[in-house]
Simulated scan of single mutants.
Amino acid sequence: MTDDRLQWLVDRSEISETVIRYFRALDLQDWPAMRATLTDTLDLDFSELFGDPREVVASDDFVGAAPHRMGGFRATQHISPNHVITIDGDSAEMTAYMNAWHVVEGPDGIEQTYVLRGSYDITMRRMSDGWRMSRLRMRVWHETGNKDVFRLSAERYAALHAAAN
């Protein structure tokens, strides 16, 4: 095996691992671990899910807002199989399939779920400490359940934190 081929395999493994660590951190609500997978700025496009326009944000701000949207879920599970990766030096493009499950208790005590299937187009950059994501574009293929779970999660998070203070 050539050194170039071996480097390609190592890079591919590290790139895939970065995406898996991102989704794991999201599910565990481990915000510092999530931040460690991102470059300092992030080109986001979640327009197919939320209708928000594409924007470039500071990753610290993106991660800082995550608990307010995701912190009220009882549980989430983000699965990211089928990584197709193209590496060009210190940058990479990938498509990662996505299956995301979200559950939150509604104000009436009834559990609400939402399942989303699709893919992410992701741009990666090699940094001094490893590969990090610089762009996330979500593509939505299928949704089922109550999409209002994101609002319910945000309300539950706010209520829990208001009660703690």
Rank of each mutant, 00 (worst) to 15 (best):
A25F: 00
F23N: 10
I20R: 13
E17I: 01
L44I: 06
F46V: 07
F23G: 02
M34P: 04
D45E: 01
F23M: 12
R24Q: 10
L28C: 03
R21N: 09
I15L: 06
R35V: 08
L42P: 03
E14Y: 01
L49H: 13
I20V: 13
Q29S: 09
R35C: 06
M34V: 05
F23C: 12
D45L: 10
A33T: 02
D45R: 07
E48A: 15
L42E: 10
E48N: 03
E48R: 09
R35A: 13
A33C: 05
T39Y: 04
M34R: 14
E17C: 03
I15V: 11
S13Q: 13
L38Y: 12
D27A: 10
D43R: 09
T37Q: 11
W31P: 07
L49F: 14
R21D: 05
V19E: 07
E17R: 15
D40A: 15
R21F: 00
F46Y: 15
R35L: 15
Y22P: 02
E14M: 09
D43A: 15
T37Y: 08
A25R: 02
E14R: 12
D30C: 05
F46K: 03
L49E: 10
L42N: 06
T37M: 02
E48Y: 01
E14T: 02
P32N: 05
D40M: 04
Y22C: 09
T39E: 12
M34S: 05
S13V: 01
T41V: 11
T41M: 03
T37N: 02
L26G: 08
M34N: 03
A25L: 00
F23T: 14
D27V: 11
L28T: 03
L28Y: 01
I15G: 06
M34C: 11
L28W: 01
S16Y: 02
M34D: 06
L38G: 09
D40S: 14
E48P: 01
A36K: 04
